[in-house]
Write a protein that binds this DNA or RNA. Structure first.
Lengths: 220, 220
DNA sequence: AAAATAGATTAGTCTTGTCTAATAATGAGG
DNA sequence: CCTCATTATTAGACAAGACTAATCTATTTT
């Protein structure tokens, strides 16, 4: 049974591999607010315990065991985030840190019951998929909003960054998971775009913002 | 900000002082599954930090600061137990260990919102009082069932031991918090008593059991 | 009052997880 | 191909928190 620090490292590796295709010591260290040397030591230990393969100087890859473990952590994290937002009334920009603590509570039964209580949700408040008990993630075909062209009709599926600033900005513009948009115009010089929500008037989004919005096709 | 281990020690001292009037090294050690020598070291540290007074060889007493801290832990523990039983459908004999982990999650806002979500309950599923945000406990005048005499009408207010065995026994007899009983007869030779629930037929309770039931007066 | 016993404390060790400093490997540019 | 900047690793120190063994204190028993 991994310690809390071990769990954090496994999850960091998983997340980095999701975002790109590599998990380097430096990036893991940055994410965990640790020094690289500490991470090296930890990776060696986790490799011995069979959670990952550590190729010195070339980063880490998860084993099946490590991946399964990481998926349970992600599941726990996202279920708690869902609980905090949907039941306790937290804003979606406030839940990350708390869920980060709750995900380490060890009780399989607790997660089973929480899952049932929330209605076995497939997505968390940021639109990220929640792995099921077996670690299976239901896939959606989404693209980044900044890859869309004028005239596209789309629905916001997920927000791929969870910094407080971005989430509050979206909130203030009335942009939520599920909000339908039409892309009116894309400005080549700075990548900003004008979008019009189904209900409400049009406004502009900078590339910084549209880059982090995952959307799926809506009806045209 | 105390560490998890420090929190555990503070709470153990608080609980022992509630149950009796002393918190000795040995008893703290037993409760935390630690050795006495480890506890001594910890008590010295907590005394330096101002959470308690440590009188070597005569145990520990909490300071106001330590008591306030312990009350917040108790509050968190009992709110989570209430959540687990009332919302997630856990049995009241299954929640202790999980709540023991959840009580260490640090977020004042979380507890405020949980409290509101549960309807600001004053008692947990075992009938124990939940301190409010300021640490104030609403008192009730209760007595142990084994101090009652034949003919008394009482209502179960709390169960003062939370071992799985006792709680399951009570469950199987239909005894819950709030159940009304009439004491039919007390047997002097072994302290057992016959009781009759308002609805249902009479049965016998051993002294072991009646000793741990806190009751309040019901209507005669 | 002395001895015995239960419990508490101290001293010293070990493990875990972190750090800093020193050393080594990689990959890019000249 | 060599050098340099970046990143990784190793080695050694340190703090927290637990343990064992040895010592000490308080209390009870004789």
């Amino acid at each position: 049974m991994p310690t809390r620090s071990e769990e954090d490292h496994i999850k960091a590796v998983y997340t980095l591999l999701q975002e790109g295709d590599s998990a380097f010591t430096k990036d893991i260290a940055e994410r965990l607010q640790n020094k690289a040397s500490s991470v090296t030591v930890m990776l060696k230990k986790l490799a011995e315990k069979g959670f990952l393969k550590h190729e010195p100087y070339y980063g880490a890859k998860l084993t099946a065991k490590g991946r399964g473990f990481a998926l349970q952590l992600v599941r726990r994290h996202r279920l708690w985030e869902t609980f905090l937002v949907e039941r306790l009334g937290f804003g979606w920009d406030e839940v990350h840190e708390v869920a980060e603590q709750m995900e380490h509570v060890k009780s399989e039964k607790l997660i089973d019951k929480l899952d049932a209580y929330l209605g076995k949700p497939h997505f968390d408040p940021h639109g990220d998929p929640i792995p099921d008990k077996k670690g299976v993630i239901r896939e959606r075909k989404t693209r980044r909003l900044d890859s869309c062209a004028a005239g596209d009709h789309v629905r916001i599926a997920a927000v791929s960054e969870t910094t407080d600033g971005l989430l509050r900005l979206l909130d203030s513009k009335g942009l939520r998971i599920g909000t339908s948009l039409m892309v009116q115009e894309v400005h080549a010089f700075d990548g900003s775009m004008d979008v019009k929500p189904k209900s409400g008037s049009a406004f502009s989004l900078s590339k910084d913002v549209s880059h982090h919005l995952q959307v799926e096709k809506g009806k045209p």
